[in-house]
Design a binder for these strands. Structure first.
Length: 654
RNA sequence: GCUCGGGUAGCUCAGUGGUAGAGCACUUCAUUGGUAAUGAAGGGGUAGGGAGUCCGAUUCUCCUCCUGAGCACCA
């Protein structure tokens, strides 16, 4: 009779390891090397992350996950959230626990504490206690919940209604419970959780609680509001500090902060939230963007229209907005007539289309407008330039035949690519397909979705599919860019629309003299000028490339005696359409240079006796120590070239 | 819209139940400087708005507006 007391484990390098049956990941790590055993925190078992204490099975393919590797962070963070929960419950006995997942850079845990609101000062205390708890080197033990019904009852008795609810939901999934166990084998705290977790709390050292906020239980507005404690945790202090430094850098780039120091835009309590006042500096950036946009669109065969800001309510009945967008629309009562402030431009462009009969020979019609729209966004959603109530879309609608729309989409893609690459923005695409609530039959959706896919694949573009996330009126391609803080912003979008052509009974006459319905494509490239200005401000950290920079040159006299010369030179630059300013304050030159640099002015011209005599200028680029001498004419020529080419780089070099 | 913070000078912020302070910015004067903060003097706020409590409120309470983090929302 043969008994198998050995199992064989496959390792990533292809080798195998023989172990006693019943061995776990810790045993495996020890058998390989003591050093590995020290760093081992979890296992990758046949591609799934499991606890280190997982009992190995014969023929398992195991990779040992060690502290510091990519997959280890989620485990570290998740386990830390449980310690947070344990500590909070100890400190506030009435605290009921919700959920506590790992997030991108940290973790949170949701609590309901009827008799206490956690303050920032509390966080300092709680953080200390987390560290203290972690240093107690508690072992984490996973146990299956054998009698689920009585465990639920136990939770309910303790008032842990949220845990009871979760366990109730998972009662048929072999639910598990995690325990913190001390050196004497005593269980000090437990939580219903799937894991995986660290083998021991001793790994947790570099932890910092960041803030507390509100959140609905299970993200549902009608549910209880929980107190959500956020934190971040890393394998060591150095990593933590690097993370905090990154965060600080991101905060420095925050467009709302730069708006104040660089005088970009403002909002006013007197005017209302989410209504943007563009100051001259950011307005200059905007105008440059608009000019660029118009040039490219003109070349791409677009025609520009201008439409009103309000229209009678009946228009929005026809478009359907009164049904499905009413909450977001501002309305005006004038005499007995209701007017709506437009939340979108599309119905207006449709009206222009419908103002005359169209032949297939007219198509495609590409109708573009920088259209300012107003939407009553929820007060809590309003945020800087990112989410506002009044904004200008770089909108366009393409009306074309079914044979043309794939080519039209390719055309839009090329425009997007050209504009984004000029701005130095990388983007990714998502194709969103038919949602559950949708109009139009399957046939037309199929037609539209395959067309979008075909367009993208013929362009050789990579894209992800986002099933069921299309608009109710048609599928769409969203273009997303990443900003300095790592946030993903949706800017450009291309959407097919089966709804409006129907509702407005749009038509054209085909070559066979039949009446056909045109395909309608909505598209925006910047999305909104507000949002793209935010992304660019943060992307460049305020240091706009020369063509976009509000002030392109700062002229700095060395002493008052050079003021006249400097003023004349400024006027000469302005005559050449270079945005030049002078700094004639009675400050030291050093101070003025520093000031111009902080304001991110690309070029500084320092002018003293030497320059006045030689007719040359001393050119300095922001952030660079380099100084270059050249004649005024040469400088103008190089500037104009840099501006015209919309270069991202300085002719001097950084 | 919801939860929790916050709103004091142009900006960043301190402080106090008895009508308010710093740094930067601004103005003036002196300095006339060669590539990252010259020195001195001065002006400026009635405390987001409203109501209440109090002998008295910027400070306490309530309402409202704006704002931050998070949630919800986002064609």
């Amino acid at each position: 009779m043969t008994t198998t007391t050995k199992i064989s484990i496959k390792l990533p390098d292809g080798s195998s390891k023989e172990l006693d049956k019943g061995s776990n990941g810790e045993d495996l790590a020890k058998s390989i090397s003591p050093g590995l055993a020290k760093k081992a925190i979890a296992l990758d078992v046949n591609g799934q992350v499991k606890d280190l204490f997982y009992e190995l099975q014969d023929a398992d393919e195991i990779k040992i996950i060690t502290a510091g590797e990519r997959k280890s962070y989620e485990i570290l963070r998740h386990t830390t959230s449980h310690i947070l929960a344990a500590v909070v419950q100890k400190k506030y006995p009435n605290a009921k626990v919700g959920v506590g997942p790992a997030t991108e850079n940290g973790f949170f845990y949701d609590f309901r504490i009827e008799d206490h609101k956690i303050t920032d000062d509390d966080l300092i205390e709680i953080e200390k206690e987390i560290k203290k708890f972690a240093s107690g080197a508690y072992k984490l033990v996973k146990e299956e919940v054998k009698d689920v019904a009585s465990k639920i009852a136990e939770y309910k008795k303790a008032g842990e209604v949220y845990k009871a609810e979760l366990l109730e939901e998972h009662k048929d999934d072999n639910p598990t419970e995690y325990y913190f166990v001390d050196n004497n084998g005593v269980k000090v705290w437990s939580d219903h959780c799937l894991g995986p977790h660290l083998p021991n709390t001793k790994f947790i050292k570099a932890v910092k609680l960041t803030n507390v906020s509100g959140a609905y239980w299970r993200a549902k507005e009608t549910n209880d509001v929980m107190q959500r404690v956020h934190g971040t945790v890393w394998w060591d202090e150095q990593e933590l500090e690097q993370y905090l430094a990154r965060k600080e850098e991101a905060e420095k780039r925050d467009h709302r902060k730069l708006a104040k120091t660089m005088d970009l835009f403002s909002t006013h309590e007197l005017a209302g939230a989410g209504l943007i006042f563009w100051h001259a500096k950011l307005a200059t950036v905007r105008q440059e963007l608009e000019t660029f946009w118009k040039q490219l669109h003109r070349k791409a065969g677009y025609e520009f229209v201008v439409t009103p800001h309000i229209a009678k309510s009946e228009l929005w009945d026809t478009s359907g907005h009164n049904n499905f967008y009413k909450d977001n629309m501002y309305s005006l009562q004038v005499d007995d007539q209701e007017y709506i402030l437009k939340p979108m431009n599309c119905p207006f462009h449709v009206l222009i289309y419908k103002d005359s009969r169209h032949s297939y020979r007219d198509l495609p019609i590409r109708m573009a407008e920088m259209g300012t729209v107003y939407r009553n966004e929820a007060s809590g959603a309003v945020h800087g330039l990112a989410r506002v109530r009044g904004f200008t879309q770089d909108d366009a609608h393409i009306f074309c035949t079914r044979d043309q729309y794939v080519d039209e989409i390719k055309g839009v893609y090329r425009l997007i690519e050209e504009i984004y690459s000029t701005l130095g923005l990388e983007f990714q695409m998502e194709l969103s397909t038919k949602p559950e609530q949708a109009i139009g039959d399957d046939e037309i959706w199929e037609f539209a979705e395959t067309g979008l896919k075909r367009a993208l694949s013929e362009l050789g573009a990579n894209f992800e599919i986002n099933p069921g996330d299309g608009a109710f009126y048609g599928p769409k391609i969203d273009f997303k860019v990443k900003d300095a803080i790592g946030r993903i912003w949706q800017l450009a979008t291309i959407q097919l629309d089966f709804n409006l052509p129907n509702r407005f009974e749009m038509e054209y006459t085909s070559a066979d003299n039949t009446t056909e319905q045109p395909v309608m494509i909505h598209r925006a490239i910047f999305g909104s000028l507000e949002r793209v200005s935010m992304v660019l401000t943060e992307h460049f950290a305020g240091a706009f490339p020369t063509w976009l920079a509000p002030d392109q040159v700062m002229l700095i006299p060395i002493s008052d005696s050079h003021n006249d010369f400097v003023t004349k030179l400024k006027n000469k630059l302005i005559q050449n359409e270079i945005r030049a300013k002078t700094d004639l304050r009675s400050e030291r030159m050093n101070y003025k240079i520093r000031d111009a640099q902080e304001k991110q002015v690309p070029y500084m011209l320092v002018i003293g006796d030497k320059e006045v005599e030689s007719g040359k200028v001393n050119v300095r680029f922001r952030r660079s120590q380099k100084q270059v001498e050249m004649t005024v004419e040469e400088f103008i020529e190089k500037m104009l070239e840099e501006i015209k080419s919309r270069s991202l780089n300085s002719f001097i070099g950084d």
